[in-house]
């Protein structure tokens, strides 16, 4: 899932300062699952904003709505009557959703209430961690299911750097060393000799380095 994190309250307050009526928009997909911008988070932020503005003597009308998906036109088009006379949309969807809603309602300001952070998994209840950078050229077969591009702070392809200690990354003791994880997998699978394979230079043109990416499936197009 795409993992996001709500922006600090003061930053959000500043974003909506000029408005008296906004639509606070959530998304039922990833941001719901990672508890950053689903119905619950929308309700909490709306309540906080109303109270804050009431206290400041500048009441604000915050309409709450959660779209099934903010990244799919069939849901985004349904938003028109809901926007009504809102002066701006404050979105708790991921960066994709924020942009996509903006593309459909060009007269509206669509403001981000979350920072979109990474593609990851829920390691446990309330803990999310990054797993994929979307480099467009998967090598998980070679590293037995642990991505060196994402999980090594330096995206090293041929082994750990000299900063790996006690299973941790030199960047933070909170972060496991990606290459330790890979070596552990090699050992578990009795394939440590696989480490000796030299990985050639990566073709980054399939990654963001090749420019914004697009995927088309002709058979599905209408």
């Amino acid at each position: 899932m795409i993992v996001a994190n709500r922006k600090p309250f003061e930053e959000i307050v500043e974003l909506v300062k000029a408005y008296k009526s906004i639509l606070l928009l959530g998304c039922n997909e990833c941001v719901t699952v990672c508890a950053a911008g689903g119905a619950k988070e929308v309700a909490v932020l709306a309540s906080e904003l109303r109270m804050h503005r009431e206290k400041e003597g500048q009441p604000i009308e915050v309409k709450e709505h959660v779209l099934e998906r903010n990244c799919d036109p069939e849901y985004v088009v349904s938003l028109a009557p809901i926007i009504g006379d809102a002066e701006a949309i404050l979105s708790m969807a991921c960066g994709c959703g924020i942009q996509f809603v903006g593309e459909h309602y060009r007269q509206m300001r669509v403001l981000p209430a979350v920072n979109t952070t990474f593609d990851g998994v829920a390691e446990e209840q309330g803990v999310w961690a990054e797993r994929c950078l979307g480099c467009g050229n998967c090598i998980l077969d070679k590293t037995l299911g642990v991505c060196p591009v994402t999980r090594c702070a330096k995206s090293l392809f041929n082994g750990p750097c000299g900063g790996s200690h006690g299973g941790k990354c030199e960047v933070s003791d909170e972060t496991p060393c990606g290459w330790q994880l890979i070596v552990d997998r090699y050992k578990e699978m009795n394939m440590l000799d696989k480490y000796m394979e030299i990985q050639p230079l990566k073709n980054w043109s399939t990654s963001r380095d090749g420019g914004p990416r697009k995927r088309v499936r002709e058979d599905l197009k209408l």
């Binding site: 003061e10 906080e48 206290k55 400041e56």
Partner: peptide, 8 residues
Amino acid sequence: ALLDECGI
């Protein structure tokens, strides 16, 4: 924490 941040 939320009440603190929104000034209540």
